[in-house]
Structures are given as structure tokens and as C-alpha cells.
Nucleic acid binder design. Sequence first.
DNA 1: CTGTTAGCGCCTTCAA
DNA 2: TTGAAGGCGCTAACAG
Lengths: 342, 342
Amino acid sequence: MARSGTGGSKAATLNDVARMAGVSLATASKAINGRDQVAPATRQRVIEAAEQLSFTPNSLARSLIAGRTGTVGLLTSDLEGRFVIPILMGAEDAFGAGQINVFLCDARGDTIREQHHLKALLNRRVDGIIVVGRQTDPRPSLGQGLPVPVVYAYAPSDDPSDVSVTPDNVAGGRLAVEHLLSTGRRRIAHITGDPEYAAAQDRTIGVRAALAEAGLDLVGDVMMSSWSEHWGRAAAGMLLDQHPDVDGIVAGSDQIARGVIDTLRDLGKRVPEDVAVIGYDNWEVLALNSRPELTSIDANLQQLGRTAAMRIFDAIDDGEPDPGVHHLPVRLVIRGSTIERR
Amino acid sequence: MARSGTGGSKAATLNDVARMAGVSLATASKAINGRDQVAPATRQRVIEAAEQLSFTPNSLARSLIAGRTGTVGLLTSDLEGRFVIPILMGAEDAFGAGQINVFLCDARGDTIREQHHLKALLNRRVDGIIVVGRQTDPRPSLGQGLPVPVVYAYAPSDDPSDVSVTPDNVAGGRLAVEHLLSTGRRRIAHITGDPEYAAAQDRTIGVRAALAEAGLDLVGDVMMSSWSEHWGRAAAGMLLDQHPDVDGIVAGSDQIARGVIDTLRDLGKRVPEDVAVIGYDNWEVLALNSRPELTSIDANLQQLGRTAAMRIFDAIDDGEPDPGVHHLPVRLVIRGSTIERR
DNA sequence: CTGTTAGCGCCTTCAA
DNA sequence: TTGAAGGCGCTAACAG
């Protein structure tokens, strides 16, 4: 009786199928793989035998011959970070469509473990590797000598001869300000997260640039501290204290935006009538449950994952790397925190 | 010049190493794998040659011989769901420690795609499969005939002869009530999510049981609707309207709890002095940014992932399935929403 | 159309 | 202590 787990007899091999169908190994192979040098009747017999034995071709053997495994490694530094998940999804999706399977490796921010995983991936002869970082700050390159193409996603490599894809945070900052301007705001402030993050710096650059182009200045200084709701609340309090006439706030993250909105309500300011607030990340759990719902910048991370996958595809086939850091477009998602409901 | 991507000459094979070291293939193999029938000097020479050529043993060839690949499949129905991620992390971690690599497959809730991925995993000769669902409701079994052990995590299989691990939601409900009771609350209400979810039902059972044991009744009916902050706000409004004397609320999720707390503040109720609120999931982004921070039930999902991995390990080695649904313990995390800060 | 032969890269007897 | 030979499961030339 075939118990589930370690079920009795081993998996059927092509040899078994051939014998059962009364043909040679080679013929069975051709029949199964749809080669056209085989009589219809024979093919039919082989296929039936295969079904009978519930034959499954052994990918290992195939890969050994082909020199390609149809697998790629997804090397992440931190699965916990919520930015890597959509990227993973996008990549897995793109590869899945191309009959490629994905090895998931989480280095947990540890270089040793990363090296260890890298080695394992190479032993397994993956056809390519995507390295997904948790921040947009550049990270150390895995090096140039690797036998397979590598693409860095989200966190670009610090070596310009590597291929990297990362969201365009400067454009995101611009987009946020341009949107606020388009709703008639003129006294705009910027509250954002940890200044150690490139994301904070880049978005700020975009914010400043867009304001400058409109001939405006930021209201107060950029307020930078942490990516939390707590900071959003505190900063908004200080801001309104010093500049009660502010009419638009660009928050560096949706969490900060939530905090900002909380404080504004506490202070009796209406959003968006008195002050418009725009977040960043379009993290739906936060954005959709906010009162009012949060306008935000979406970094298209799933798309970014797909793009990384495509670049690996190309590198595997053509071998045309196109090195450098590629900044991918971001997207404005408009909700009630910047535009009044009618 | 060895360009990064599809770098020049192919990877070195054991044959190359043997030739360079001036020994036979067999001897090289023994030397590299630490077999003891080889002279120290010879071994040294082989190892040096291997390093020179940066030789990497081809896992495919090894697996072909060994009949085990040292890989497992992680078949998830929905990567987006935030519950699968910690489970993934736990499993990946446990396997990583055992030199096993993980194939990640996201079926996106589609049965066809799931079958497709399953087939691919079997072709690749994974040694085992973990199926991770996004809800705790039972899901269809993959079937009994599979040639490798399967463990279902979070969403148990509907076939009791399969092995499943899932959090103990009934115990979670109990735990929440017992905690509120221990802080002196007696008029306890329960606001939870979608009644279609087993999670909502099971937690409610636990809540009722714990109250009954204390000789108490729930204040009002269980309020079930959706897992959102919006619902938490609305429900709390209705509840306080009908039962202004309530002094403890068990929320079915942290999101609901956040909504509840929001409304309580709007109504001028102090948390936890007037009303204690406990959430569920211990989703830190929400729990830690709440005012006050949220007491919650943590389902130990990472541990659950590890457990699933362990069971696969065991099944691969021993072949002792121990079928049935195993309910894993949950954990209370106490914060400011149920206990006053001193 | 079908079968025979030679590997893919590696490990493991078994002789020498 | 070393090497030659067989085979893991499959495919891709070749002959028949």
C-alpha cells in the first residue's frame, strides 16, 4: 500500500517506460518530448505507458546535459522588510511564466550567510541571481568573477559595472510636490524619516527641486528622524506650532503620514481642506484605513521585481548586461488626503 | 577578459582538477570529499588544483547519484498575505541550517497554477513540500499518491491523513480573555472580522469558553464583519452606544483594535483606564505605533514555519508522518492598551 | 521510423 | 594508495 511519505518503489524512469512500451530508450525519449521522428502509434503507446507508471522526467538529468538548470537564485538580505516581498512576487511571477523556478535565500543581513548562500546557489548551477536589498542605499557588489549574471534590485550595487534596478526616489519627491502644487497648495513642508537612508535624501532632493522650479521655498526645514507614526505625530505638532499657515505636507512614508494626520485632527485641522497630506510607499493597509484615505507615491515594486527578472532573462540568453543603476518610474496614487471628496 | 555575465570558459569540472593535479578522476573525488584512502600529499595537490580552477562541485550530478537533491518546495497560495511571510522565514531558516535549499512557488490562489508548480517541483525531485495557506481554514489536500512527504502550514489539509500545523486560535481567544480578566475587567465584548474565516470562529469559541469558565457572559453579541480598521471604528461606536459600561474589548485583529482605540479616544474614553483593548496577530507596525501600544496575541508564525520544516526533515529521514492537524501554541504580548503605565 | 552509442559530472565498487 | 569501469536518468548524434 503506497503510503504518502516515503512511498514504496522509486519513481519510474524513462527506461521503465521504454520497456513497458516495448521500445528503446531513445524512442521513448523522442515520443515523450514531441520529437517528430516517431510513428503516431508508437508515440501513443509510449505516452500510455508513461501515464501508467506516472512517469515524471527527471529535471536533474536533463539539466546535466543541457548545461542550464532553469533555476535562479533570489538572494535577499532581509525577508522581514516589507519592500522585498513585492519584489519577490514580481520576480517569481515573471520567472514562473518562463518555466523557471526560484531558490529563495535569506541572508538575514549577515555577510557570512550571504557568501554561504551564494556558494550553495552556484553549486546548484542556477542560471542567474537576483540580489534584493532592503534599502535603496548601495550595497557591496558580489564581485565580478561570477559565472552567472547577477542583477541587484532595490539596493543597487556599489560597483557601476554591475546591473542594478532601483526606484526613482528623486522623481517620487518631485511627483509628490507637483501634485500638491496642482491642488493649489503653496506653503509646503516636508517631514521624512531617517537621514541615514538614501531614500530620505533622494526624496528630499526631488521635493526641493520641484519647489524651486515653482519659485517656492520649503516651509521650515526638512524634518528628518525616523520612519514611524510616532515621529509623524511629533513632527506635525512642532511644524504646526511654528508654521500654522502650512497648507501641504509631504511625508516620507505612509507611516509618517498617518501620524501627521492624527496630529492634524487633534489640532482641529481638516484634511485635506486646511492641509493636504501625501504619503510614500502606498502601503495599502495603512493608506486605505486612514481617515481620510491617503494619497501616496507607489514605487511599483512588483514591476521592479519583474524588470529584474527580465534583465536576468536577457543576460542568460543574449549576454548583453547593460550595466549601471537603472532608476524605475514611480506612480502617484490619489486619494482623499489631498483632494476633497465631492 | 572574463566579463561578468556569461563568462568565457565553462565552469571547471572534477576532470579538469584531476588532470591538473596529475591524478585520476576517482582519486580527485576522494581527495575533495575527505575520503581517507588517499595520501596526504596527493590530497594537498588536488585541493590546490581545485582552488586554482575555482572548482565547484556540480550538485546536479551528485543529486542524480544520491537520489536526494537537498531541496524542498515551498508552495504558497498567496505571497501577499502577511501571514505567509514569517512562516516562510522560519522554514527557510530551519532548512538553511540543514544545508537544504528552498524553491519558492506562489500559486496566487489559482488551483491550476498550483498543480503546475507541484509538477515542476516533482520534476526537480524536491525531497519534500511545505504548503502554506493564507487562512487557517482547511484547504484541499494535494492528494495521497505523492512520492515525497508534504506538510501543510497555517491552512491545514482537509484530509486528516495529511500532516498539518496551524496556530491554536481557540487557545488565543482564551488567552485574550484570561488576560483581561486578570486585569480586573468583567464587562467584556468581542469585535472580530469576517465570519467566513475559521480564525474568527475559533477565536470566538475560545473567548466564549474562557468567559463561561469565569461565570461571565459576553457584553452584547459578537460583532463580526471585516478585518479592517474601518470596521473596528464603526463597531466600537455601536458597542459603546448600546453598552457604555463595557470595560474590556477583545479585537479579532490588530487592525480592528486600532480602529476600536481610535473611536474610544473620539468618545473620550481612556485606554486602558476606562476600557482595555487587546488585539490579535501582534503585527508590530500597527501594535507599536498605536496610542497606547497594543497588547496582542502572537501566533508564533516563524516558529510554526520552523516546525513545519522539522516535520519535513523527520519525514525525509525516518518516514514517520504522525498525521493530523497539530495546533501550535500562541503567546500573549502585553503592552499599554491593557495595563496602565506607572 | 527505430535502435545503438556516447556522453553530461560525479561517486563507488573492485582490482591492481 | 591509486586507477579503471560502471552507472545515476536522460538526450543527441549517428547508424540501421
